[in-house]
């Protein structure tokens, strides 16, 4: 039996809304340590990795490790029926072929349940290696979203260059060229405006803005986002979900041919 009760139910809605355009169907893996998802996007250029720890749930029970294949589009439709402040409980029998979502309003005066058919999705689950990145930039998630949106009106790709002075996002196209530089400001009076750069060595990589924009759909999940880069390796775009875990995206850089 798998049963998990999430008081901040809208967190699940935000997670699914953040990944449903990148990944169509995916396996959610449940184990005693938590609820995870790892999937390549449909074009195998980016990887999504979700991890929600069991201790972040009000109640979490997983008698046997199980993998629940779901259409993320259908899951998003079901979660749209949940109130923003609803408590969400997921339930699935060990050998069942459905998963039930129960939504309870805070005043417990409205309870609804939705049953979703599970799918058989074969996906090789590979470990994500720890990488010692050349640079990790942490900036407000809204700032990152705005940079990606602004630059995607200029070009299809962005060069992200991290140096000790700051991180520069450059793009060019028919319209012209654009450079946006964000400097480290760990002394910003408001925490949510802080930008920090952990630099081991300068690094500059080129990425497709389409994917970076898609990752920014996770903005509602966290105040900040971290971009970790190393030469010729996928960038890790990391949204920390407070007290629960993280939603991470990996995107391969464009290798200059």
């Amino acid at each position: 039996m798998f049963e998990a009760r999430l008081v901040q139910g809208n967190l699940l809605k935000k997670v699914v809304d953040a990944v449903k355009d990148l990944v169509t169907d995916a396996n959610f893996d449940c184990s005693s340590s938590g609820f995870t998802l790892q999937a390549m996007d449909n074009s195998h250029v980016s990887l999504v990795s979700l991890s929600l720890r069991s201790d972040g749930f009000e109640h979490f029970r997983c008698d046997r490790n199980m993998s629940m294949g779901m259409s993320l589009g259908n899951l998003a439709k079901i979660l749209k029926c949940a109130g923003n402040d609803d408590i969400v409980t997921m339930k699935a029998a060990d050998d069942g072929d459905t998963v039930t979502f129960m939504f309870e309003s805070p005043k417990e005066d409205r309870v609804s349940d939705f049953e979703l058919k599970l799918m058989d999705i074969d996906s090789e689950h590979l470990g994500i290696p720890d990488t010692d990145y050349a640079a990790t930039v942490t900036l407000p998630a809204a700032e990152y979203q705005r940079i990606c949106r602004d630059l995607s009106s200029i070009g299809d790709t962005v060069v992200i260059s991290a140096t000790k002075d700051g991180v520069k996002f450059s793009s060019s196209g028919d319209v012209g060229t654009a450079n946006i530089t964000v400097r480290q400001n760990t002394t910003a009076d408001k925490k949510e405006e802080q930008v920090s750069i952990d630099l081991k060595e300068p690094v500059a990589l080129t990425f497709a803005l389409r994917y970076l924009n898609s990752f920014a759909k996770a903005t509602p999940l966290a105040s900040h986002v971290s971009l970790s880069m190393a030469r010729d390796l996928p960038v890790m775009v990391d949204y920390q979900i407070s007290d629960m875990g993280h939603l991470r995206f990996y995107l391969a850089p464009k290798i200059e041919d």
Binding site: M40, V45, P129, L233, Y250, P253
Partner: peptide, 14 residues
Amino acid sequence: KQAQEFLKRFYNAY
């Protein structure tokens, strides 16, 4: 080894 496996998944990008 694990890193190779991981990178291989991004095969469409390289």
